[in-house]
Simulated assay, not measured.
Amino acid sequence: MQAYWTRWEKWMQKHAPKLPDTLNPGVAPATVDALERLIGSKLPADFKSFYAIHNGQQRVKTGLVDADQLLPVEDMITQWHHWKNVLDSGGFIYNEEIIASTPDTGIKSDWWNPLWIPITSDGFGNHLCIDLDPAPEGQYGQIITVWHEDSHRGILAPSFEAWMHQYITAIEKGEYVFVKKWGIVHKDTFLNYND
């Protein structure tokens, strides 16, 4: 997974030289163990190898993933607790019926599942997640979208490594640009403008 970080940091050095300063050092194994104990499941090896190099990024306005923060494991735990508290308090039940999402094939129809681990955040309850509890047609460790006010749950990639490959390749091809106010954003997004 070092190759992905090397490519990403090389792009950042060229297009956003201050952005690598937002990267955290590699995650401590004990922190990963704490997350795995909390969720009662093992995280994919590709994810752990990637985070051993950099534990996401600091909380800054400029995001690494389409304007969103690449969460450190400690913040994944915090976000997981927020969602779990809503689940446990009945927040995903309306008129005594469980609220369902409208997922892509391969994702369960939960509004949120305790084995959907947030890996990015826009600060408003929207995440990309590692799905450790896929539907039968899905894959363990697939990367999915979870927007708190949108019922659709989409699959972005079949694994963490596949997602990294897709994203970093798209960055290198010029499909993403650096915007000072937001960070790395898709070139066609409304966030790509000059103030």
Results as ranks from 00 to 15, higher is better:
residue 20 P to N: 03
residue 21 D to T: 08
residue 21 D to L: 12
residue 21 D to Y: 02
residue 22 T to C: 01
residue 24 N to V: 01
residue 24 N to H: 13
residue 25 P to N: 04
residue 27 V to M: 01
residue 28 A to T: 04
residue 29 P to E: 02
residue 31 T to M: 08
residue 33 D to K: 14
residue 39 I to W: 08
residue 39 I to K: 08
residue 39 I to R: 07
residue 41 S to I: 02
residue 41 S to W: 10
residue 42 K to W: 00
residue 42 K to S: 12
residue 42 K to T: 05
residue 42 K to L: 07
residue 42 K to I: 02
residue 43 L to E: 00
residue 46 D to C: 03
residue 47 F to G: 01
residue 48 K to Y: 00
residue 49 S to E: 13
residue 51 Y to D: 01
residue 57 Q to K: 00
residue 57 Q to P: 10
residue 58 Q to D: 03
residue 58 Q to Y: 00
residue 59 R to G: 06
residue 59 R to M: 09
residue 60 V to N: 04
residue 60 V to P: 00
residue 61 K to V: 03
residue 61 K to D: 10
residue 61 K to W: 01
residue 61 K to E: 06
residue 62 T to G: 01
residue 62 T to M: 13
residue 62 T to Y: 00
residue 63 G to A: 03
residue 63 G to M: 00
residue 63 G to Q: 03
residue 67 A to W: 05
residue 67 A to T: 08
residue 69 Q to A: 12
residue 69 Q to G: 09
residue 70 L to R: 07
residue 70 L to Y: 06
residue 72 P to S: 09
residue 73 V to I: 15
residue 74 E to P: 02
residue 76 M to K: 08
residue 77 I to F: 09
residue 77 I to Q: 14
residue 78 T to V: 15
residue 78 T to W: 15
residue 79 Q to W: 07
residue 81 H to V: 06
residue 83 W to V: 09
residue 84 K to A: 15
residue 84 K to H: 12
residue 84 K to E: 14
residue 85 N to A: 12
residue 86 V to M: 14
residue 86 V to Q: 12
residue 86 V to T: 15
residue 89 S to I: 01
residue 93 I to A: 08
residue 97 E to H: 13
residue 97 E to G: 01
residue 98 I to F: 06
residue 99 I to V: 15
residue 100 A to I: 06
residue 100 A to F: 12
residue 100 A to H: 15
residue 102 T to Y: 07
residue 103 P to C: 06
residue 103 P to G: 10
residue 103 P to S: 10
residue 105 T to R: 13
residue 106 G to K: 10
residue 106 G to F: 01
residue 107 I to G: 10
residue 114 P to H: 14
residue 116 W to C: 06
residue 116 W to N: 10
residue 116 W to R: 07
residue 116 W to S: 05
residue 118 P to T: 08
residue 122 D to H: 08
residue 124 F to P: 00
residue 124 F to C: 11
residue 125 G to C: 07
residue 126 N to R: 06
residue 127 H to S: 11
residue 127 H to K: 04
residue 128 L to I: 08
residue 129 C to R: 05
residue 130 I to A: 09
residue 130 I to D: 02
residue 131 D to A: 06
residue 133 D to A: 15
residue 133 D to F: 04
residue 133 D to R: 06
residue 134 P to K: 11
residue 135 A to L: 02
residue 136 P to F: 05
residue 137 E to D: 12
residue 138 G to R: 09
residue 140 Y to D: 04
residue 141 G to F: 03
residue 142 Q to K: 05
residue 143 I to T: 04
residue 145 T to Q: 11
residue 148 H to Y: 08
residue 150 D to N: 13
residue 150 D to Y: 11
residue 151 S to A: 14
residue 151 S to W: 10
residue 154 G to S: 11
